[in-house]
Structure formats: structure tokens, C-alpha cells
Design a protein around this nucleic acid. Structure first.
Lengths: 322, 322
DNA sequence: TTGAAAGCGCTAACAG
DNA sequence: CTGTTAGCGCTTTCAA
């Protein structure tokens, strides 16, 4: 690999001059510029990003921590984030944390030592303390970690209420909720929305704990259906669990949506792939990704954030499961 | 951020000594080591990976190019690769190429300038020429790029034959194939397998071109069913298209598997999420990821590769669509 | 308009 | 066992 020195020698100039044409700053005579460019081409010279990083204390890279890329919610988010930052000349370092705090902390250390310019994180486990002392800008996605740290998320509470409202409108009266894991912020909010909406209509509530996974949800649905006669609607805490609920109904020979109506939350692609297609509260996943990229970039560039917290709304998408 | 010099000053030793305790090489007296360790802790010092990279010409990072993380085949692959390399102390730079050559080449340049230690790539578009002159070890996954470059893939040809054989065994005689995009290696191999197996049984062939996507495949299936009476089996080039075929059948009111049997290829999680669950030729995706990691790591460490090409076999997983 | 030289933080000879 | 020093490849004063 050719270095800046090789280019300088070949062009018969100093490295400083080469650096100037590389970065397009400072004065450099048109003739010398040409010589330098020629040398660059001839040697197929590419500036060494590591050396540059060392000096500039910036790496043109973003660290992105997600729980698990295998969870269908994240591929789209990652894609949106990556697209945004590639445009801006940044590279994405991707880490799966499995929501394990210890792992997350290790990742944070790696990021510090690698001089990442900014951090994007989706986590329930991490707290503001571990993030604040970081000296690297951070934006949280999907889950609010703390008032002080910038966040892009959606209004889970009202989304949940709207989901329940649809079931109500469709005639359901005995609506069960399969909630996401305890202590997970999104799951708690959605639960609260369900509870409040049901209470507002003086209807009974049926809450079962799921873990945002398909198989467990299928089993849970079977259980909840056998334990409670007359359930005519299910609001699942996310789409994956809703799909599990649909599978359960189909195994039990229960007709959807005639006998049982099911609504999910998230708007992942899977919702459209299955039969019947799943009605869901669709999150603007791409927007989440893009907006969090924008906030982080501003932070990196030292601009102040007017609003630290951006909240989007989930949109009802009616399909065939209701 | 504290530097090695700060640590040295605080501990009252030279930077060399600090470096020695950091890297655990060379002699250093137990007492001095202790002083250094204390200073490190006191300052919460983390070695600067960028500076280290510059000197060692290695970055402890791996570049990974995939077409699109949004394609359900890749999350699992990425996860497997990431898990493997995290263990080994490497970081993953993830890039989506959309299979665009121009984009792939730009990514390669970025990787060179960032001193990535190794490259993993899934691509149909790139050729050996652009990879060979690279001076960074490369391992191709899923698709053979060239004899000369190490590859981990599966035997698509025989997998396809086995898929067709199952349909045959189940009594199908008019089996259609929705193939993947033209010029895509995996798609060509699977097509060849289908053709040869059908020919071996002197059965007619029906080939339609898909693009590995769900919606197109659904439309294509409708078309193929309307154009050819008596189709009783469909071998889809991948699971996503098989799901599309199932949706088409369900829209048309065709019973699966009674009237029409469908088999896919890949073994993605979606196959199990839908109803009826999809029979498929399951690829050992995790193994693919792990093995390619192993090969790349050997290459990085300068060990010779005994076998440049590792081929796995897809495994028939019978579910309810056949 | 250009070059010399210092230095980003670290590692690895080389002396001592 | 420890310190001095020369880089890794680049950017940026400071002079010329």
C-alpha cells in the first residue's frame, strides 16, 4: 500500500502539499495539484484512515448496539441507520448485546477505544450513568433510557390504546393482552395502554406474560384460550407474538377473524407474509432509524439539539386478522 | 481520555514499561507492575485502539458485505459471524451492498483504508479480479466467486434434487419451479438440480422466474397456476418465494398440501412462523457463519488453508406444506 | 504557494 | 528489569 510519502516522492513535492490536495485546503498551485493527482492515480494511493483518525480523533464510524439482529424488528432499523450514515461517509460497527448489561459495557469500552464518533443504542438494561460519563455522543432508539439522553421512540401507550379500540370497534368485548417481558419499557407502556382503554370501557382484563417470542406466545395463547371461555380478541404486545397467537388459533381450529380477532404491534414484514395477514400498529421503523441518525450526526457535529426526545406515532394498518 | 503517557507519569515509569504491562510482554518487576496497574485504574485508562492499529497495521475488525440485512436469510448469518468474531476480540463492520458492484467496490476501498483485518462477502456481482489484488484476506460465503478464493457454501444442486425428490415421493407429477434471479449462482444451481431430477423421471418441467421476493412470487404463482392446469407441486427457489406461493394458493382457495404441495429452500425462521408450516431444504446457516469465520481467522493469522472450499449440505425438514 | 517539523498514542528495537 | 527513541501515516502550524 502506497503512503502519502510515496506520492510526495513521485510527484516531487512534500507530504504537506499532498495532504493539501487530498483535503482540498490551503493553497496549492494548479500545476502542482496536477502532478500530485497523477502520482495518486499512478500509485493507486488511498489515504490511510487509521492514521487520519489518530490525528483527528475521529474515526468516521458509528457504534450501533442492538439486542439481537435475529429479532425481525431490527434488520429494517439497522438498514435505515446504515443507509443514512453511509451517505454521510460513516461506517457502522454492529453489536448484538442480547440485552446483557455486562456485554453492553464491554461493547461500550471497545467503542471508546476505537474512537467511534457516535453511539446508537437500543437497550433496556443500560442506565444513564454508564452512558453519561462517556464523552461520546449517544442517541437511544425505541426505548427511553433517561430524560437527559436523546431518544427517538414511539408513543407505545397511545398506540396500544388505539389497538384495543379497534378490537372494541369490531365488536370484541373479552380482549386479552399478551404482554412483553417485565421491566421492558415498551412492554410496560403497551400494557398500560391496554389496561386504561379497557378500564375506560369497564371491560374485564386478561393479561398474560409473553417474552416477545413466537413459540412461547403460541403456547400462552392456547393456555389463555382454554382458561378463559369467550375471549374474542387478542392484543399481542408485538407482531411476533401475534403471529404465535394466530398459529395457536389455527391449531385449535378457531377461525380468524370470525371467532377471534388478533392485532399486533410493530409492523414488521412478517405481518404481511402470513395468512391471514396481520392487523397491526405499524411503527415507522425507517423514520426511527433515519431520525436517530440525524440527531446523532448533529451531536457529533457539535450542534445543539433543540428537542432531545422525538416521538413518533404508530399507525393502524388493518389487514385480515381483525 | 487518559493516554499511556499520563499513566506513565502517574506511575513514575516510562511509557515503555506501561506498554509492557498492557501487553504482558517483556520483563517488568512485580512492584512496578502494581504501580502501573494502580495508575491505570485510577485514571480509568483505556488503550487507544487507533494508535495501536496504526503501528500494528491491524485493526481487530472484520468487514462484512451482505446484499441486504432485510432479507431474512442474513440476520442469522450475521449473528453467527458476529458471535464468532466477538469471541476472538474482533469487531464487525457491516455493509449492505444491494448487490451493486459500484457500491461494493466503494465498500472495499473503505475497508482497505480502515485496515480491516479480513473481509467476508456475499456477492454475485463481484469478481475475483477486484478481490485478488486486495492484500486483505477474503472469504466468500454462500456463493462461489472463484476457485482461487476461499468459500463456504452449500450444495445447492443436490439440495434441489432432494427437494424435487420429496415432491415426487409424495405423488406430485406436475412440478413447477419458481427460480431465483438469473445470473445468481445459487439460483442457477437450484434450477439445474430441478431440471435434472425431472429429466431423470421423464417428467415435464415448468420454470418461472422469480426474484427471491415474496410479492412477485405470489403473483408468479398465480400466473403459473392459471397457465398450467394440473400443477400439483411447486419447488420454490427460496423460502421467501415459497411463502409467496403459499399465499397465492390460499388466495385461490387451493388446499395445501392436499391439492398442491410446496417446498422451499433455506430454512429461515419465517418458514416455521407461517401456517401451514413450510417444508424446506434447511441450510446450516449458523455453521456457514461460524466456518467462514474460522477460515478467515486462519487466513488472518497467516495459517495456510488445507481446503479452500467448504461445502455443506442442505437438510430436508418436512413440515405441513407437503 | 510550498516545505520542515511536531505530534496524534502506541509498540518495539536497542541500550543500559 | 527499565528507559530512550524511532517510527506507524497523516494533518497542521509555522516559516520561508
Amino acid at each position: 500500500m502506497a503512503t502519502i510519502r510515496d506520492v510526495a516522492n513521485l510527484a516531487g513535492v512534500s507530504v504537506a502539499t499532498v495532504s493539501r490536495v487530498l483535503n482540498n485546503n490551503g493553497y496549492v498551485h494548479e500545476d502542482t495539484r496536477k502532478k500530485v493527482v497523477q502520482a495518486i492515480n499512478k500509485l493507486d494511493y488511498k489515504p490511510n484512515a487509521v492514521a487520519r483518525s489518530l490525528y483527528k480523533k475521529t474515526s468516521k464510524s458509528i457504534g450501533f448496539i442492538i439486542p439481537d439482529i435475529t429479532n425481525p424488528f431490527f434488520p429494517q432499523l439497522v438498514r435505515a441507520v446504515e443507509s443514512f450514515f453511509v451517505e454521510e461517509g460513516y461506517t457502522i460497527l454492529l453489536f448484538n448485546s442480547d440485552e446483557e448489561l455486562e456485554h453492553e459495557l464491554k461493547i461500550l469500552e471497545i467503542m471508546e477505544s476505537k474512537y467511534v464518533d457516535g453511539i446508537l443504542i437500543v437497550s433496556n438494561t443500560i442506565g444513564k450513568d454508564q452512558l453519561e460519563h462517556l464523552s461520546i455522543p449517544v442517541v437511544a432508539i425505541d426505548r427511553v433510557i433517561d430524560e437527559t439522553i436523546p431518544t427517538v421512540s414511539i408513543d407505545n401507550y397511545h398506540g396500544a390504546r388505539e389497538a384495543v379500540r379497534l378490537l372494541l370497534k369490531k365488536g370484541c368485548r373479552n380482549i386479552a393482552h399478551i404482554r412483553g417481558p417485565e421491566n421492558v419499557h415498551t412492554a410496560e407502556e403497551r400494557l398500560k395502554g391496554y389496561l386504561d382503554e379497557m378500564k375506560a370501557h369497564s371491560l374485564p382484563t386478561f393479561v398474560y406474560v409473553g417474552n416477545y417470542e413466537l413459540k412461547t406466545s403460541m403456547l400462552t395463547t392456547m393456555k389463555l384460550l382454554s382458561e378463559n371461555a369467550g375471549i374474542d380478541g387478542v392484543f399481542a404486545g408485538n407482531d411476533v407474538m401475534a403471529v404465535g397467537a394466530i398459529k395457536a388459533a389455527s391449531k385449535l381450529g378457531i377461525a380468524i377473524p370470525k371467532e377471534l380477532k388478533i392485532i399486533g404491534f410493530d409492523g414488521i414484514e412478517l405481518a404481511e407474509a402470513i395468512t391471514p395477514e396481520l392487523t397491526t400498529m405499524e411503527q415507522p421503523i425507517l423514520k426511527l432509524g433515519k431520525k436517530s441518525g440525524e440527531l446523532l450526526l448533529k451531536l457529533i457535529q457539535g450542534e445543539p439539539l433543540i428537542t432531545k426526545h422525538v416521538t413518533y406515532h404508530a399507525k393502524l394498518v388493518e389487514r385480515n386478522s381483525t
